[in-house]
Simulated assay, not measured.
Amino acid sequence: MFREIKKNKLLPAVTVTDVHSALLVAEALLEGGINVMEITFRTSATAEAIRAIARELPEMKVGAGTILSPDQLSAAQEAGAQFGLSPGLNKQVVEKAQEHEFPFIPGVSTPSDIELALTYGHKMLKLFPVSDLGGENYIGSLEGPYKHTGVRFLVMGGVNLSNLKSYLESDMVTAAGGSWLTPSDLIREKKFKQITAIVRESVILAEQG
């Protein structure tokens, strides 16, 4: 499943409050050239949104984000999520994912987090919040001690059109994600064509990175 993230180089982090909007966002992403997305566990509509996308738009690879507990991970998998992510590294969540053979990307922010993730066998890691941590300079500092381990980052937190290309130019970065691809105000205002336009612009930049 991570192949799709690596192939797209982009992972939209989508927060929705209703299933219908989730489907329209997924369609806007597909039209813009991205076939992978995460629905964040930040509203009561998350599980049903995942279920609807998995059922009605099978060409979209849908995952669950902001997984903070084993129960949320189980709910995500039961809804049809094909992968999961978290902002941090919760041992209980990681172990639950391994128990259920559920593709999972834990979040890291420090060398200690990275080393703990490695003890669990995770090498695809969400570096969050990357911009607040120091952006490209921080990633460069991590390259020396960790590049040889096979660790690669999905960078999230402060990524946008202005810095996307520079992040993707790093050998340590596999993909970049975030809500800039599907701004909540555009979802709320049902401006899905504008979301498609942002996605298309991002896809072009990603191809150059």
Rank of each mutant, 00 (worst) to 15 (best):
M1D: 07
M1F: 08
E4K: 14
K7L: 12
L11S: 09
P12L: 06
A13C: 15
A13V: 15
V16P: 02
S21F: 03
S21K: 13
L23R: 12
L23H: 03
L24W: 07
A26H: 03
E27S: 12
A28D: 01
L30C: 00
E31W: 05
G32Y: 00
G32M: 11
G33M: 07
I34R: 04
N35F: 02
V36D: 07
V36C: 09
M37I: 12
E38S: 01
E38A: 08
F41H: 08
R42Q: 05
R42K: 04
A45V: 02
A49C: 03
R51T: 05
A54R: 13
M60P: 03
K61R: 11
G63T: 03
A64D: 02
A64R: 10
T66P: 07
I67H: 05
L68N: 10
S69P: 07
D71Q: 14
D71L: 13
L73K: 05
S74V: 14
A76E: 03
A76I: 01
Q77E: 13
E78V: 11
G80W: 00
G80S: 05
Q82K: 10
G84Y: 09
L85H: 08
L85K: 10
P87Y: 02
P87C: 01
P87T: 08
N90V: 13
K91I: 10
K91V: 09
Q92K: 14
Q92A: 10
V93H: 04
V94A: 12
E95H: 04
K96N: 04
Q98R: 14
H100Y: 13
F104I: 04
F104T: 00
F104D: 06
P106A: 09
P106E: 10
V108C: 09
S109A: 15
P111E: 02
S112Y: 09
D113H: 12
A117W: 07
A117R: 02
T119N: 14
T119V: 12
T119K: 14
G121S: 04
G121D: 06
K123V: 11
K126V: 00
L127W: 09
F128C: 01
S131D: 14
L133C: 04
G134T: 11
Y138K: 04
Y138R: 08
Y138W: 14
I139T: 00
G140A: 12
G140K: 15
E143M: 13
K147A: 14
H148Q: 15
G150R: 09
G150Q: 09
V151L: 11
L154S: 05
L154I: 02
V155H: 03
V159R: 04
L161V: 08
L161Q: 13
S162G: 12
N163M: 05
N163W: 10
K165E: 14
K165C: 05
S166K: 13
S166R: 12
Y167G: 08
L168D: 00
S170F: 03
D171L: 06
G178C: 00
S179N: 00
L181N: 03
L181R: 00
T182L: 01
T182D: 04
T182E: 06
D185C: 09
D185L: 11
I187R: 04
R188A: 14
E189Q: 15
K190Q: 15
K191H: 14
K191T: 10
F192D: 00
K193N: 15
Q194N: 14
Q194I: 13
Q194D: 15
I198L: 13
I198D: 03
V199P: 06
E201S: 12
E201M: 09
S202G: 11
V203G: 05
V203E: 07
I204S: 14
I204E: 15
L205K: 13
E207V: 06
Q208W: 05
G209Y: 01
